[in-house]
Design a protein around this nucleic acid. Structure first.
Length: 270
DNA sequence: ACCACAACCTGGCCGC
DNA sequence: TGCGGCCAGGTTGTGG
């Protein structure tokens, strides 16, 4: 579910309640959610470590801890995080709970159980394979040009490849390609310099709008405080099949590309 | 190098 | 109401 803007929204909301809190223990009834170390080792190692910061890299949440480890969380399709007081009833889909020394808890609720957590001394072991962050100033048109033209791949699946660009998912790929006026099925190496410049601006526009609107709620996504995002109200193509294009009134079409539903305007994205 | 597809899970929705 | 089939914001592994 969550893409870069949703994860960024969650990170921003978790900083105030969590920075400075100290872990005491974890509880789980679905140990597969814990990738490394094994649950017993995880429990032992996280105890007495204080959260010193909360950051985002691609779709990962990073919690640097006081003794040098980093807690990594990936929410995958349906993961949600919430900070709750001790004693709150546990939802059916909460399979991992982080307890703090003051009794508060960080709860990881995940209907589909795809989400994963890692406790690592060296987070680069996981994060090292990721491509550039598209919202950093260092992500330039020239860099995007190199990423697109140094290989021959279908454009949209390339944008979804986290080792090429980090953080874009199915929603924001479709939205960005519409803003750029480029068809999702184009070969990456065939884009003109003008199209690449438009795509660069379009990626940043879509992601920044998503952050401004605090993410997109289609079904399950909620912010840590339980509120829905507002980005779904801004969709130009995603989830709008057969509805009129906001620019030219042509019905939005959809097809499958790289195994993902893809929405586009046949008029504006030829 | 690139692509298609299954797998990992559960629930919601649609048609019958 | 119930049931089968299909869909879902992500990622990884396999095989062609």
């Amino acid at each position: 579910m969550p893409e870069l803007p949703e994860v960024e929204t969650i990170v921003r909301q978790l900083r105030r309640p969590l920075i400075g809190r100290t872990f005491s223990h974890i509880w789980t009834d679905w140990p597969r959610q814990i990738v490394t170390p094994d649950p017993a080792g995880f429990n032992q190692r996280i105890a007495n470590q204080t959260i010193t910061a909360i950051e985002r890299r691609a779709k990962y949440l990073l919690f640097p801890l006081s003794q040098g480890d980093t807690l990594l969380i990936h929410l995958k399709m349906s993961g949600q995080l919430a900070v709750v007081p001790a004693g709150e009833p546990r939802s059916k889909h909460t399979h991992l709970i982080f307890g703090f020394t003051d009794g508060a808890q960080l709860r990881f609720t995940d209907t589909r159980k795809f989400g994963r957590v890692y406790l690592l001394g060296e987070p680069a072991d996981i994060l090292g394979q990721l491509g550039p962050e598209p919202l950093l100033p260092s992500f330039t048109i020239e860099q995007l040009q190199r990423l697109l033209t140094s290989r021959k791949r279908t454009l949209k699946p390339l944008l979804l490849d986290q080792t090429v660009i980090a953080g874009i998912g199915n929603i924001y790929a479709d939205e960005a390609l519409f803003y750029a006026g480029v068809h999702p099925g184009r070969n990456s190496a065939s884009l003109t310099p003008a199209e690449i410049a438009r795509l660069h601006a379009a990626i940043q526009k879509a992601l920044n709008l998503g952050i401004e609107r605090q993410g997109a709620t289609i079904s399950m996504y909620r912010q840590p405080d339980g509120r829905k995002g507002q980005m779904q109200d801004e969709f130009v193509v995603y989830d709008r099949k057969n509805q009129p294009c906001k620019q030219c009134q042509t019905p939005i079409q959809h097809f499958t590309l790289g195994g993902r539903t893809t929405h586009f305007c046949p008029q504006c994205q030829q």
